[in-house]
Computed example of a mutant assay.
Amino acid sequence: MHRYFIYLAYDGTNYHGWQIQPNGISVQETLMKALYTFLRKEIEVIGAGRTDAGVHAALMVAHFDYPGEPLDTSQVKEKLNRILPPDISVYNVKEVKPDAHARFDALSRTYKYYVTTEKFPFQRQYRYRLHNKPDFDKMNQVARILYEYTDFTSFSKLHTDVKTNNCKVTNVCWTQIDDVTWEFTITADRFLRNMVRAVVGTLLEVGQGKLTADGFRKVIEQKDRGKAGTSVPGQGLFLVNVEYPEEIWR
Rank of each mutant, 00 (worst) to 15 (best):
T30F: 03
K210L: 14
Q125P: 04
V240G: 04
M139R: 08
C167H: 06
K157C: 06
L39E: 10
H16F: 14
R103C: 06
L237Q: 02
S26L: 09
K41H: 13
T181Q: 10
W182Q: 08
Y7N: 07
F120Q: 12
F136Y: 08
R193F: 13
C167N: 12
R3N: 15
A213D: 11
N166A: 10
L203H: 04
V162M: 11
T187S: 12
K77P: 01
A102C: 11
H131R: 09
A53H: 05
G47Y: 09
S108N: 12
K33E: 13
F152E: 00
R124K: 14
G12Q: 02
M1D: 15
S108F: 10
Q19H: 08
G229P: 07
V206T: 11
I88L: 06
Y147W: 09
D99A: 05
V172Y: 11
V240L: 03
N166S: 05
S231P: 15
D178S: 07
D65M: 02
D52P: 10
V242H: 04
V93Y: 01
Q176R: 15
I220C: 08
Q21T: 00
D99K: 11
V169W: 05
V142A: 06
I145D: 06
V242E: 02
Q75S: 12
D105E: 03
V206C: 10
N14W: 07
V180Q: 06
E95C: 01
N14Q: 12
A34Y: 02
M139E: 08
V196R: 01
R190A: 15
Y66F: 14
N194H: 15
K41W: 08
L59Q: 09
K119F: 15
S108P: 01
V45P: 05
P134M: 00
Q208T: 02
I46W: 14
D224K: 11
W249D: 06
N132Q: 10
D179W: 02
E78D: 14
E44G: 03
T164L: 03
V242R: 03
T187R: 13
I186K: 00
E183F: 00
T110K: 11
L80G: 02
T51A: 10
F38R: 02
D87P: 03
H16T: 07
E44R: 15
E221L: 15
M32Y: 04
D87T: 05
H63G: 00
Y244A: 00
D137H: 06
K119W: 14
Y91S: 01
N132S: 13
Y113W: 08
L146M: 14
K33R: 15
F191I: 07
G207T: 01
D72P: 00
Q235H: 13
H159I: 06
L237N: 03
V45C: 12
K138W: 02
K112L: 03
R82D: 09
H131D: 13
G226N: 14
E246F: 04
